[in-house]
């Protein structure tokens, strides 16, 4: 039965300390955004109109899908299916690349419109929150890529796959944060 709740945290315990710290950082940033928004309602609502929700929604789908592939990769390595694990990680990375491309286009669009951190408070939050998350996607992808290469070299099997779980946990955190960030900054007015 899978209702037993006795397993240790998946992956390395140290990554969880890191994940908790990261969640705290994002949590504080989200609340800071919400408070500032409530103080400048009109300004925020006005500039929110110019954000690109289509790519935002697409990016949500991409991150969810990549998380799904990572789950498949973890399940595969538990059955010693190395090739499936590698494929899962590869597809997850592909989705990650898609995210980065869409986001880069969005940023370059904003930059070419002359929008900077100092343009106004809304854009300051928009740029710093999304860019901070963007950097996390890159970091997560670096970790996934490292695991992919190790998996391909045969470093993991059904007994020893802590590394895969470690990277997976971090990647899901990046996904989780976006699940809140996207509606908060792009949708709610």
């Amino acid at each position: 039965m899978d209702t037993e709740r006795t397993k240790p945290l998946p992956g390395d315990f140290a990554i969880w300390i890191f994940i908790f710290a990261e969640l705290m950082v994002f949590g504080v940033l989200f609340i800071a955004y919400a408070v500032t928004r409530s103080l400048h309602r009109e300004e925020f609502a006005y500039y929110q109109q110019f954000l690109d929700r289509e790519t935002g929604a697409l990016n949500t789908l991409l991150l969810i899908t990549s998380s799904y592939f990572v789950v498949k990769a973890v399940l595969a390595i538990k059955q010693d299916k190395v090739q499936q694990c590698v494929n899962g990680l590869g597809l997850a990375l592909l989705c990650g690349c898609g995210f980065l491309v869409a986001k880069t286009l969005e940023f370059s669009d904003k930059f070419s419109a002359g929008i900077r951190l100092s343009t106004n408070t809304f854009y300051m939050f928009y740029l710093s929150l999304t860019f901070f998350h963007f950097m996390h996607v890159i970091l997560g992808m670096v970790i996934l890529a490292a695991i992919l290469f190790k998996a391909r070299a045969g470093a993991y099997n059904h007994r020893e796959h802590t590394g895969v779980e470690t990277g997976a946990s971090y990647w899901h955190m990046v996904d989780l944060v976006w699940i809140i960030l996207f509606p908060l900054v792009y949708i709610i007015r």
């Binding site: 709740r5 006795t6 397993k7 998946p10 998380s67 779980e165 899901h172 989780l176």
Partner: peptide, 12 residues
């Protein structure tokens, strides 16, 4: 995502 994908459903 937390319960299923991160797998915390089975954790303490």
């Amino acid at each position: 995502i937390i319960a299923e994908y991160m797998g915390l459903r089975q954790v303490a």
